[in-house]
Design a protein around this nucleic acid. Structure first.
Lengths: 232, 232
DNA sequence: AAGCGTAAACTAACATGCCACTTAAAGGAC
DNA sequence: GTCCTTTAAGTGGCATGTTAGTTTACGCTT
């Protein structure tokens, strides 16, 4: 397939060029369109996007500090591969932050926040009934996002997203398993219940147990997609 | 004082120019040599450092994504000011990560790790006896750093440092208080004791209580240094 | 004297040229 | 056929020219 253009990076975004290039590349990497290990040729990117090397270099630099790209000094730059240890670390960090967040939300939750979470959980049930697993996935993401938001700490939301980028990317490789959405929803129910009765410790425990399911399912991916992983 | 050269940024560092400029500026900002609100003139920096605009622009870009400088789009770039809400958020994040870290360490600590922490705590006592508060400050930082390291998660150490940069900077404004080092050491003793007896919950509680002291002391700084704070 | 409009000075952002270094493949020697 | 050498392509890093936008300050008008 000599057509390596792999879908067009559109400049329908807004902001400075460097920002737009960064966002476009980031999205492609996070949704696994750009596969781990793929070489990013700077010249080709410049030509394909119709911009000069400056914004591309800036974007690649930021992606590098995000850990999404490995820059080999005078040689090449490629989409970073997964490493099990790195995914474990991100899982640890994500759990630390989300557990602390849910505890705070459980303590201070308002009725409105409770209503929104309850509504989301009911939606999850409907989507499972309809077997709309893509929709459930999005509702799942929303559920966690709402809890982070309800801390009232906008920077916490950003930090949580930033510190688990590899995890987010690896999650795209997970295949749908039969009973999984229902199990996840049961976890969510336990979390919401703890928030409802304002029991921070129960919320912590429920969130912790829930998040540990993800890394357990991600670890075996190394055997299924060996080329996506770095075997150090 | 027209001598705005404010101490020379030395190129005694190693690595690429951009990295050196970044590190030099970062250090100056973190140790409060460059005060919050100060305008960073790119041209002056280039001339003073004897480098071109490229590495300086790269360094400022990285500092901007670190939140240490504010770049006003086609106008100027200045050292970022503190904001109480931002400091609260960083304190929350730091507590989330360090509490999770100390719980893990308490569960899995080795004898060697215990020995190193114990040795550090004894050093803290000696430094307090000698009234070497600068030395105590460094031992304090080491103590927390060691706990993060002992998780075995190198990325956690980096993330913890990266997410509390403003906190680290604001801490420089704190004036030495008479009984404070002794109190801090008592907290450290409680933390170490929980690690010793491998009680994760006690370690969590002790670390949490300890870290909440810092933000309590930082909040009042807004009244003492109003020009350093952003009053949104 | 006060208010307004204009122009000059500064900036960030982007484009481009250059160089030193790494890498890999092509070609020659054995 | 194998090994070594060399050469060409690609890259990161730095310098510099150009452009567009913002701010400031000066001077003109009223």
């Amino acid at each position: 397939m000599p057509d390596q253009t792999l879908a067009l990076d559109i400049d329908s975004l807004e902001g400075p060029l460097g920002q737009r290039v960064y966002t476009a590349l980031r999205n492609k990497i996070l949704d696994m369109t750009f596969e781990p290990g793929m070489v990013l040729r700077k010249g080709a990117l410049c030509e394909h996007l119709g911009v000069s090397r400056s914004p591309v270099a800036e974007a690649l630099g930021r992606l590098s500090s995000d850990g999404l790209v490995d820059i080999i000094p005078q040689s090449a730059t490629r989409v970073s591969q997964f490493s099990v240890s790195e995914l474990r670390e991100e899982s640890f960090l994500r759990e630390a932050v989300e557990v602390a967040a849910v505890a705070k939300v459980a303590k201070e939750r308002t009725e409105e926040q409770l209503t929104k979470l309850t509504r989301n959980l009911r939606l999850q049930g409907l989507l499972i009934d309809d077997q709309d697993y893509q929709g459930f996935f999005e509702a799942d993401v929303d559920f966690h996002h709402m809890i982070l938001e309800f801390t009232g700490y906008p920077k916490v939301v950003l930090a949580a997203g930033q510190m688990s980028l590899q995890l987010r990317r690896a999650r795209m490789l997970l295949l749908p398993e039969p009973g999984r959405p229902a199990d996840a929803m049961a976890d969510h129910h336990a979390i919401l219940n703890a928030i409802n009765v304002q029991d921070p410790d129960a919320a912590r425990a429920a969130m912790s147990a829930h998040l540990r399911q993800l890394i357990k399912r991600i670890i075996p991916l190394e055997r299924q997609h060996p080329t996506y992983f770095r075997h150090v």
